[in-house]
């Protein structure tokens, strides 16, 4: 009886997450092929945007700026074997990307032909999906600019 196989128990729950005004605006922009950032009251441009200044809890300002989807890699980690939920299902780099005009970094994927092309400070640009739904995956990934 000791060799009874262990059953796999899948805990699966669907969630319909209401977004609130700020994330809603950001995701609506992504669906429309646009990247929007908002400003904290101290003028810091956050992308992705938050309802608040993460450092103080103060509400963010109502100022929004549109970014053009190009940016610079601040950090990266190369994944040779993606997990089933990863953004890309081929070898790629997770990256922190400082979009031009933003003061914070966006976490996303960068696709290059070869790991040797990856470097901190490299310039990248967003590659959009044709069919967009209002999700971070509307940007398929970033690619060298």
């Amino acid at each position: 009886m000791s060799d009874t196989p262990v059953p796999i128990d899948t805990v699966e729950m669907p969630y319909v997450r209401t977004l609130g005004p700020v994330i809603s605006r950001f995701f609506t922009g992504l669906r429309d092929g646009e990247i929007w950032a908002n400003k904290t009251r101290t003028g810091k441009v956050q992308c992705p945007p938050f309802e608040y200044d993460p450092y103080t809890g103060e509400s963010a300002s109502d100022d929004w700026v549109q970014l053009d989807g190009t940016g610079t890699v601040s950090s990266w980690a190369w994944v040779e074997e993606p997990l089933r939920n990863h953004l890309l299902q081929e070898p790629f780099a997770w990256c922190l990307i400082r979009l031009d005009g933003a003061d914070t970094d966006l976490v996303h994927a960068v696709r290059v032909a070869d790991k040797g092309q990856m470097a901190t400070g490299m310039r990248v640009e967003a590659r959009w999906r044709d069919e967009r739904i209002g999700h971070l995956r509307d940007i398929e990934c970033f690619e060298p600019a």
Partner: peptide, 11 residues
């Protein structure tokens, strides 16, 4: 995005 704990540590 599916980013996992090994990848975040890698960043």
């Amino acid at each position: 995005t599916g980013i996992d704990c090994i990848s975040t540590a890698g960043l």
